[in-house]
Computed example of a mutant assay.
Amino acid sequence: MHYKVTCTSCKRPFKLYEGEEQYKQFKERKSQLFYCEECKHKIRFDAIRNFFS
């Protein structure tokens, strides 16, 4: 089972599959911000890079 959502950053649709943390947040309506794997990786990399700067 999955839900189709739009990435907050790149605005492309992607699927949230059962068992993922974002799937749980979507189902419980705890978060309105969802990021695809590519954008999550970019955000994580930028945070690490800025931490060491």
Rank of each mutant, 00 (worst) to 15 (best):
Y3R: 12
Y17S: 07
F52A: 08
R29I: 10
K24Q: 12
F34V: 03
F52T: 15
K27H: 11
G19M: 08
P13N: 09
R44L: 07
S53Q: 12
R44C: 06
Y23W: 05
D46C: 09
F26K: 02
C36S: 02
C36H: 00
S9D: 15
T6G: 10
K27S: 14
F52H: 13
K27Y: 08
P13Q: 04
R29P: 03
E21P: 00
F14I: 06
H41S: 10
K42G: 00
Q22N: 07
K42C: 01
R29D: 14
K27M: 09
C10M: 03
Y17L: 07
H2C: 10
M1H: 09
Y17W: 11
K24Y: 13
E18P: 01
K4F: 01
R12A: 11
C39I: 01
E20L: 08
K11E: 14
E20P: 00
F26E: 03
L33Q: 05
Q25K: 06
K11P: 00
F52E: 09
G19K: 03
K42V: 05
L33C: 04
E18F: 12
R29F: 11
Y17N: 09
C10S: 05
S53N: 15
F26L: 04
F51M: 12
Y35W: 04
I43K: 06
E28W: 01
I48L: 12
C39G: 01
I48F: 07
N50P: 00
M1N: 10
F51S: 15
R29H: 15
S31T: 04
C7S: 07
M1C: 11
L16D: 02
R49Q: 06
M1T: 15
M1D: 13
F52K: 14
T6Q: 12
L33N: 09
F45R: 14
Y23N: 01
F52I: 14
I48Q: 10
I48V: 15
F34P: 08
A47Y: 03
K11I: 07
K30Y: 02
V5Q: 03
S31F: 04
Y23R: 02
L16Y: 02
E20D: 08
Q32L: 12
K15M: 02
R49F: 07
K27A: 11
S31I: 03
L16N: 04
C39M: 02
F52P: 01
F26H: 10
R29Y: 07
Y23M: 00
F51K: 15
F45P: 00
Y23C: 03
L16H: 01
K27Q: 15
K15N: 11
C36V: 00
S53M: 14
Q22M: 07
R44D: 06
E18Q: 13
K42E: 09
C10A: 04
K40E: 04
Y17K: 06
F14S: 05
H2R: 10
E37I: 00
K27R: 14
C10E: 04
F34Y: 05
H41C: 04
S31C: 11
G19F: 05
N50F: 04
K24T: 14
F45Y: 08
M1Y: 07
T8C: 07
E28S: 14
D46G: 12
G19C: 03
V5D: 01
S53C: 08
L16S: 03
R12Q: 14
N50M: 11
Q22V: 00
G19E: 07
S9G: 06
C10I: 02
Q32I: 13
C7E: 00
T8S: 14
R12H: 13
K42Q: 13
Q32V: 12
T8R: 08
S9Y: 11
K40Q: 09
E28H: 09
E21M: 04
